[in-house]
């Protein structure tokens, strides 16, 4: 049986597509880079990753322009059919801008870009995205963003991950990652692709990529 194909979207200004592809491979998937002007997902792709970066240079608002490109139409159809979508950092922003996830991501309370390792606490253990970890279990994953404070009504989503300890960016209820109510579209600000290799200090991020193949 051939490996599951995973579309890794690439917009002008996307930065983490190669790391995301490496992470998909690390869990046994077959990543396929997908151009933003394409109108369909690649043949046979059963899941989608929207990697981080600065699509369109964050012009207008982070994720705003990318959310209006042709490929997002295909992603919306895929999600409506129950297909899994993982949006990381700028990918999370794109998912919120496109309406696939509720809420918005506002500038960090410090108004500064912040990059550091974080402990993420599993808030909702019932989604496929945290590898069967129990509520309260901790995953070590770094974050790096300027606009990462999620703002919205948590009741419109399922809160999957929260920052443990101090709130690093002013996010509502220390939210780090959410899914839609159906649970098939996941967005988070931290970078699980930077936590898939023991040399980088953590492999906790693999759970999120493994969920794409399930």
């Amino acid at each position: 049986m051939s490996a599951t194909r995973v579309a890794v979207l690439r917009f002008p200004g996307t930065l983490d597509h190669e790391s995301a592809a490496k992470a998909v491979q690390a869990v046994g998937g077959d990543p396929v880079f997908t151009h933003h002007m394409d109108t369909e997902l690649p043949d046979g792709a059963t899941a989608v990753v929207i990697p981080g970066g600065f699509s369109y240079g964050d012009h207008l608002r982070p994720g705003a322009l990318a959310s209006r490109t042709p490929i997002l139409g295909a992603v919306k159809r895929h999600a409506a059919d129950g297909g899994r979508v993982l949006g990381i950092c700028n990918g999370f922003q794109i998912l919120c801008e496109s309406g696939l996830l509720p809420g918005v991501l506002r500038p960090n309370a410090s108004l500064q870009f912040i990059c550091r390792q974080a402990d993420l606490e599993v808030a909702d253990p019932g989604t496929p995205w945290t590898g069967g970890r129990l509520a309260g279990e901790v995953m070590s994953v770094p974050f790096k963003h300027h606009d990462g404070a999620w703002f919205g009504d948590p009741g419109e989503s399922r809160v999957v991950l929260r920052y443990k300890g101090e709130n690093p960016n002013g996010s509502i209820d220390k939210i780090a990652g959410i899914t839609n109510l159906a649970g098939n579209v996941m967005g988070l600000m931290p970078h699980p692709e930077e936590a898939c290799d023991p040399l980088l200090g953590s492999v906790d991020g693999r759970a999120l990529f493994a969920a794409l193949l399930a």
């Binding site: 983490d16 490496k22 870009f113 990059c115 550091r116 692709e193 930077e194 980088l200």
Partner: peptide, 14 residues
């Protein structure tokens, strides 16, 4: 200083 910089992008920073 350095927490304002992306130290990781590229998944290669050991």
């Amino acid at each position: 200083i350095f927490q304002q910089y992306d130290q990781l992008v590229g998944a290669g920073t050991v």
